[in-house]
């Protein structure tokens, strides 16, 4: 068997608690001053990739790939610090204006020549949350896929994976490799980058590819027309004052208004 090569597609997204505002064209958020982080499900995909490589015990490689502007480099360095062997940065300044198919095409163009044994990515991103990139990637690469995976192991014939279904149900799926898996959060405990890892990451190779070189721009399949603030579904009574005052007011409301105490 040839050495295992696992590609992990990673997205950089605004930090979870980052204050968001709509940009002036109302077609995306204002990005200046925002802090960014690795998309959490992708962090789990990376973790699964590192574990698979370690458990195989043979010479193998984990390659992190990400599309986005220059700032994406920090997320790729984080992946390298955690144990990825090298990275591919698809430099692309207009990621947010591309639809899921267009982004997956970029990733597929970068991944195809690598001939991976396995491609992993998080099941969805925390910004757009479309939950499609991995599944589209599989189609573009002509590979089988399994989604919402919490556990994966290599077998003699390919892979055995544990897939999460709704309402606490699971199933095992067997599929041949190479394949694409989309990873659900929580399957493993995430590792931290060690000091040694951070130091090593500085010398690991990051290859940059220009999005424009990866293929033809095609007409968008869907258009994100406008970003808006959500409408309140209920009129929420906000209780103010000190913690004690708010708590007392709430208990009063729950008892006499909502009648649920």
């Amino acid at each position: 068997m040839t050495d295992m090569k696992i590609i992990v597609a990673i997205k950089q997204v605004p930090e979870r608690d980052a204050p968001l505002r709509i940009d002036s064209a109302a077609q995306w958020i204002g990005e200046s001053g925002l802090r960014y982080a690795m998309n959490e499900p992708d962090a789990y995909a990376l973790e699964e990739a590192l574990r698979l490589k370690e458990s195989a015990g043979t010479e193998g490689e984990v390659v992190a790939v990400s599309a986005g502007p220059e700032r994406v480099g920090t997320t790729l360095r984080e992946a390298l610090a955690k144990g990825a062997d090298r990275a591919i940065h698809i430099v692309c300044g207009d990621l947010a204006s591309r639809d899921a198919l267009a982004v997956a095409r970029l990733l597929a163009a970068a991944i195809q020549p690598e001939n991976p044994s396995l491609v992993l990515t998080g099941l969805q991103s925390e910004d757009l949350g479309q939950g499609q990139t991995g599944v589209i990637l599989a189609e573009l690469l002509g590979l089988p896929h399994a989604s919402l995976i919490v556990q994966a192991e290599m077998t003699a014939t390919g892979l055995k994976v544990k897939r999460e279904l709704e309402e606490g149900w699971f199933q095992f799926i067997e599929l041949p490799a190479p394949a694409v898996l989309t990873i659900q959060s929580g399957g493993n405990k995430l590792r931290y980058a060690t000091l040694m890892g951070i130091k090593r990451a500085k010398t690991k190779p990051v290859r940059t590819l220009a999005a424009a070189d990866l293929g033809l721009a095609s007409a968008p399949a869907v258009i994100l027309d406008q970003v808006t603030l959500p409408q309140k579904q209920k009129s929420t009574q906000m209780l103010s004052g000190s913690a004690e005052e708010a708590a007392a007011a709430l208990v009063e409301k729950l008892k006499f208004e909502a009648k649920v105490l």
């Binding site: 959500p230 309140k232 929420t236 009574q237 906000m238 209780l239 000190s242 913690a243 708590a247 208990v251």
Partner: peptide
Amino acid sequence: IFEVADYGIAGDLFEVLPALTAAVKKA
């Protein structure tokens, strides 16, 4: 979460939770 809530307290969990527990017990 405040879009679907009937009642909301925008505040520090670590202050509000003990205060609320005390208020519930008192009631």
